[in-house]
């Protein structure tokens, strides 16, 4: 189950940092890039925490 979650998160990351997604936020690209980056880190943190809680 967690394997699917990590793959999903990886694909989400690829989408967040790729064209044309970045093009949408071109007006404030710097803010977008750092926000998306932080979001990805937080999601990984939550995933790791959930895994720990599940005893995995």
């Amino acid at each position: 189950m967690m394997r699917d979650f990590w793959i999903f998160l990886f694909v989400l990351g690829l989408i967040l940092f790729s064209w044309p997604f970045m093009n949408i936020f071109m007006a404030d690209l710097v803010l977008y890039l750092f926000s998306a980056w932080l979001l990805l880190i937080v999601l990984v943190f939550l995933g790791v925490k959930k895994k720990a809680d599940d005893g995995g």
Partner: peptide
């Protein structure tokens, strides 16, 4: 950062 997601 992206690669680290798959480290597990």
């Amino acid at each position: 950062t992206l690669m680290a997601v798959l480290w597990w």
